[in-house]
Design a protein around this nucleic acid. Sequence first.
RNA 1: CGGGAUGUAGCGCAGCUUGGUAGCGUACCUCGCUUGGAACGAGGGGGUCGCAGGUUCAAAUCCUGUCAUCCCGACCA
Length: 488
Amino acid sequence: MAKITPRETDYSKWYIDIINHAKLADYAPVKGCMVIRPNGYAIWEIMQSTLDKMFKDTGHVNAYFPMLIPQSFLSREAQHVEGFAKECAVVTHSRLISTENGVEVDPSSKLEEPLILRPTSETMIWEMYGKWIQSYRDLPILINQWANVMRWEMRTRLFLRTTEFLWQEGHTAHATAEEAEAETRQMLDVYATFAEEYMAMPVIKGRKTESEKFAGADVTYCIEAMMQDRKALQAGTSHNLGQNFSKAFDVRFQDKDNTLKFPYSTSWGVSTRLVGALIMAHSDDLGLVLPPKMAQTQVVIIPIARKDDEFAEVSVVAEQLYVQLKAAGLGVKLDDDRKQKPGWKFSEYELLGIPLRIDLGPRDIANGEVVLARRDTQEKSTVPMEGLVEHISQLLETMQSDIYKKALAFRDAHIFPADDYQVFKEIIGNEKGWVRAGWNGDAEVESKIKEETKATIRCIPFEQPENLGKCIYTGEPAKYEVLFAKAY
RNA sequence: CGGGAUGUAGCGCAGCUUGGUAGCGUACCUCGCUUGGAACGAGGGGGUCGCAGGUUCAAAUCCUGUCAUCCCGACCA
């Protein structure tokens, strides 16, 4: 009996089943808030540590800013407040009092100014940058923050959109527009590299349209990934904020030419949504599929033995193997728990997405070999004990690249060029995939298409064709070729 | 926030129409037997039936309200 519902019938149920069965997360008894269980958090930890290193390699440092933002800060930047006003949790009181009904808010503790639980930290950070920046010598500031944020979304989905989520937000300040643009693009590249090389998830880099960009940004760049139900997921964003926040917070620096200037800024972030992306990009009906670089446990050893003496014999070899693999720097687990039988363990580790399994029994020891089972392809092979560590290291690399290739082939097979609106509607309507089509650049047209088909422009890809063709909606000459898709 | 569905043991569900002792599968505990794909046998523990009111001699069941989750919209990372 399969634990996971086949995704053909109900994709959303399939996704939730994997999260439940693999014990990745639960909803908390608080509106839209998620409890990330150890299995799920382990994935986030790997994402964190990998990204953190990439940020530091590009010259960034970590800092921390408060979670509570005075309400007045949020209204400083007009577009910003408009973008976030509708989804803020607000702290209005500071005290509770005991009553016969339990505790109640103490009306006398009402705050003079309400505090907002940060939906993002631009405002708090720019308030502080104002105190830190005086001269061009103070620039650039290249800071990242690992934090939680809250957005009171109407509809939540585990990992993809929860009321509270974990993320990192980079906030940089620069003396020139060119530097800020270069930073914005650099961080987008960092995200794309991370998604493709570590998460084995191909992404398309591009620019958001005016209507889809971040509230308060001049330009928003993004990476878009295709999930197995062919919907698009925004996996990371990098914003060039121009001088919007420095002006809103009146932050100026004295430049080399003795004049006062507003610095240019960027912000960029990825969130626990990436864990959801990873689940939806690779999992199958047996459960989670983790690319080796995203797995804390990459190899699990299952000893197989009938009697106690057999088990003792197998354990000795299993221990040796464990030590060898560990020494080679691999994440390895030896499951010598005798309370569960091998068959149970096989399915359990498949559910958890452990990339590679080693079955080791008396038969194998007699033959000087082991059975290797790949999670991604479910292939089993018998390989000699001799040179096993090297073989496994190579196999994990192969798997990492195979999982990427599979996702890439899937994505490319479901992106369709279209120059006819009927064809467009047919593809989007039947959820066949994404459409690559011309667009005249008119926001009105973009909104009409969204209204009629539910497809949004995911991005204007950096890679544009030589000949742009015509706008899918109006037939006018296209200004860009863009990606249309239904999105999460 | 609008439309639809659901809420009963850790998980998955039946019972509700027609009110009358709280059920099944699985998981868990004990003993035995087992271990190369989710063993088997016997015994056992576990429930404010989402929550709050109401109707009734009696409510998981009927009524009202409310909360939560899922799906479809609107909103968004």
